[in-house]
Write a protein that binds this DNA or RNA. Structure first.
Length: 290
DNA sequence: CGCTTTTGACCAGCGC
DNA sequence: GCGCTGGTCAAAAGCG
């Protein structure tokens, strides 16, 4: 499914004969036409960037196959996993830094991991005012426990998939120690039923104004994607697959589709985007007039 | 009434 | 063996 760019073209096909036009106005029309072409080119570049993002995500998924998340000792694994995740979340994230801590022992553990249930981790950025531990990801979850862990004062919530009674998938959600606005969601196991919805969103209905799209997110790395728009809350997906041998391909593709879709819709549906676009064009016109 | 959430209790694994 | 910790259970409460 290829996202379509919003219709950013302006209807400049106005018959000059129907208007009282002088040379300056004709010149202005030419300028606007040129601006339109530039915007079209910008849109094409945007589409190209989307493709690159998709390819980058694929690459990161492959590169992160080498990192072991699970070991025979749960606590050690949890600690090393936390360490690695934090590196991905931090400012100076890079895969080499994370993969450099792989040892021979961890490789053995990694091999052991092959026989264990699949584990995947996502970071979901929430608004600061959103204190809930609920992350809607298209499945129906039933909370069966909550615990305050030693290394993180924020409680960790335990969920089971309640969509299918026999579904073995479990989910843990806990706020990040470094950034409480980030929900660390850990999935264990595989769903033995289909998706309800192939989307990832947050249980929040914030409608407050969002920062400009061009604003940088505090969480940005080659492994994360932050989506901001006026039509949905800010969502940051950390596409870290800590030690997975094979990520569920359907899940992977749906996430990628979601990312691309959201980026496209965020731009094209966001009134701010269209407003800024119109402002930029009108600004050019005024600038030319003065 | 059935489902979900909450929360204290319980259990198992691990380190000392 | 004991204490700590993470994970799970299950009864009670809440909700539609």
């Amino acid at each position: 499914m290829e996202p379509t760019c919003g219709d950013t073209s302006l209807d400049l096909n106005v018959d000059p004969s129907t208007m009282h036009m002088d040379g300056a106005l004709v010149e202005e029309l030419r300028r606007l036409s040129c601006e339109n072409k530039r915007l079209t080119h910008l849109c094409e570049n945007y589409m190209a960037l989307q493709k690159q993002l998709s390819q980058l995500i694929n690459t990161n998924f492959d590169q992160q196959l080498d990192y072991p998340i699970e070991s025979s000792r749960k606590r050690k694994a949890a600690e090393s996993d936390q360490c690695c995740t934090n590196k991905f979340v931090g400012v100076s994230n890079n895969n080499a830094e994370c993969s450099s801590i792989i040892t021979e022992d961890s490789f053995k553990k990694y091999k052991d991991f092959n026989s264990s249930p699949k584990v995947s981790k996502f970071l979901v950025k929430t608004e600061a005012s959103n204190n809930s531990l609920y992350v809607m990801d298209g499945y129906q979850w039933r909370k069966y426990g909550q615990k305050v862990t030693r290394d993180n004062p924020s409680p960790r919530a335990y969920f089971r998939c309640s969509f299918a009674p026999s579904c073995p998938v479990k989910k843990k959600v806990q706020r990040s120690l470094e950034d409480p606005t980030i929900l660390v969601t850990t999935y264990e196991g595989e769903h033995n039923h289909g998706h309800q919805r192939a989307e990832i969103s947050l249980v929040s209905n914030q409608s407050e104004a969002l920062p400009p799209l061009k604003g940088s997110s505090p969480v940005s790395s080659p492994n994360t994607a932050t989506i901001r728009s006026a039509v949905c809350p800010t969502v940051t997906l950390d596409l870290v697959k800590s030690g997975l041998v094979e990520f569920e391909s359907a899940q992977k593709s749906s996430i990628q589709q979601f990312l691309v879709q959201q980026m496209a819709t965020s731009l094209t549906r966001d009134p701010n985007f269209t407003t800024e676009l119109a402002t930029a064009i009108s600004g050019k016109i005024l600038e030319a007039q003065w």
